[in-house]
Nucleic acid binder design. Structure first.
Lengths: 233, 233
DNA sequence: TTGCATTTGTCACCGGATTGTCATGCGGCC
DNA sequence: GGCCGCATGACAATCCGGTGACAAATGCAA
């Protein structure tokens, strides 16, 4: 069910950040710091996806990528490249080398997660749901549509991501800080109260013409998508 | 249902690029790097189409092509030749040798995909839809014609490909980046906002004298062909 | 080849949608 | 009652997409 992801990255803090976020997302994470080390590892066990830094000690990301593509077992293994800001031309080289996608540092974590999901979905659709659905709520990631009951719901981008985030782990309570990290990105500087406002707007949009509020406020703790919502009460 | 394609190409990165794009398109892909190897392979199992490089180690593309045409089993097998830039005269030799089509490197991926579709359609029409149709929109790939309701719609080549791309996955939202990749080709350097302009032009052409916009703008995400278009509001 | 028409890519500006913040008000909880 | 935390309407700044204008590129015909 859960996918395995291998991180190949030599900057310690970045590895930690990635591991933390990916594990929070429910993936099994493994990490190595050197290119040659990754090469060895990948001869033994193949993960479901690799996050690969461009610049690496031991064996560069681009070279590693090439080698992986040359080997039958890893020929179609999904690879996301992390490249330094700057030369847009690297994109071409990156994709030509065989990476499936690339993202420029510094990047937004939600953005990276979205791309990982997209790749995994393509490689093994059964692992990653395109449509999330809880009670009478339905959210389609590809179509970027939300509906409640049979009625469509109009949301702005932020409200959409917020709802998506909540629907991924129904019932679980998130602090404002966690929501800021997961929905806005871990590096933004935004007032925590702002979350309240967005939750309010999301509620208003979802509840228009409906009864029962799918979002639960947990005083002193945060918010969650009510997993009991829709059932007897 | 899905077609099998054999790539015969010795440049590793190019093979990867092709495999990636063809698989994304839903084809089953196989690849070999040498001409003689391809020859052997093609005696055992016949794919639905072959993408064949001109220059190959072992056995040249042109010679391989000749042999395939001489054999009854592969006499009508669709073949697309990849030739290096330059000698236009090669075209004559290529087609004379029996290739069904040829394309000059470096080529645009969407362009190659279009030619592959065209060949497959000719060989086995049931595998590839010629006419796409959503709501009152109709797009004919062979005739390069678009009509809305009973009225014809005039489009430039780019607008045509854009609409074709969107109609292939109705409802799904594509970022400007994805549209550039899918419609223009993955290596062009074009401003993302240009997509807006083309979408605008496409809209103007489609909506002339009609009500209801078939293209949906998703703020912060991209565009899609509206899957609700034509249905009750 | 030249000249004309069409198609394309960019830019700059406009206007509406979205977003973050704040101030105020309400309700629960001790 | 008083305190604390949440809800919400208002608002200004910003973001983002739509569009007309323009020039370069391309194709076509003569």
């Amino acid at each position: 069910m859960t996918a395995n992801i291998l991180i190949v990255e030599d900057e310690e803090p970045l590895t930690t950040l990635l591991r933390y976020n990916l594990e929070a997302e429910g993936y099994e994470v493994d990490a190595v710091a050197r290119g040659d080390e990754a090469d060895t590892r990948l001869r033994e066990t193949a993960p479901d996806l690799v996050v690969l830094d461009w610049m690496l000690p031991g064996l560069s990301g681009i070279e590693l990528c090439r080698r992986l593509r040359a080997r039958p077992q890893t020929q179609t293994l999904p690879i996301i490249m992390l490249t330094a800001r700057g030369e847009e031309s690297e994109r071409v080289r990156g994709l030509a080398t065989g990476a499936d996608d690339y993202i420029v540092k510094p990047f937004s974590v939600p953005e990276l997660l979205a791309r990982i999901r997209a790749l995994l979905r393509r490689a093994s659709p059964e692992r990653v749901a395109t449509v999330l659905s809880i009670g009478d709520l339905e959210l389609d990631r590809d179509k970027k549509r939300v509906s409640r009951g049979s009625r469509p719901v109009e949301l702005g981008p932020t409200e959409f991501r917020l709802l998506e985030f909540l629907m991924e782990r129904p019932g679980r309570v998130f602090s404002r800080e966690q929501l800021l990290d997961g929905v806005w990105g871990s590096d933004v500087y935004i007032d925590e109260r702002t979350v309240d406002v967005h939750v309010g707007r999301l509620r208003k949009a979802l509840n228009r013409g409906h009864i029962g509020d799918p979002i639960r406020t947990v005083r002193g703790a945060g918010y969650s998508l009510d997993d009991r919502f829709g059932k007897a009460s």
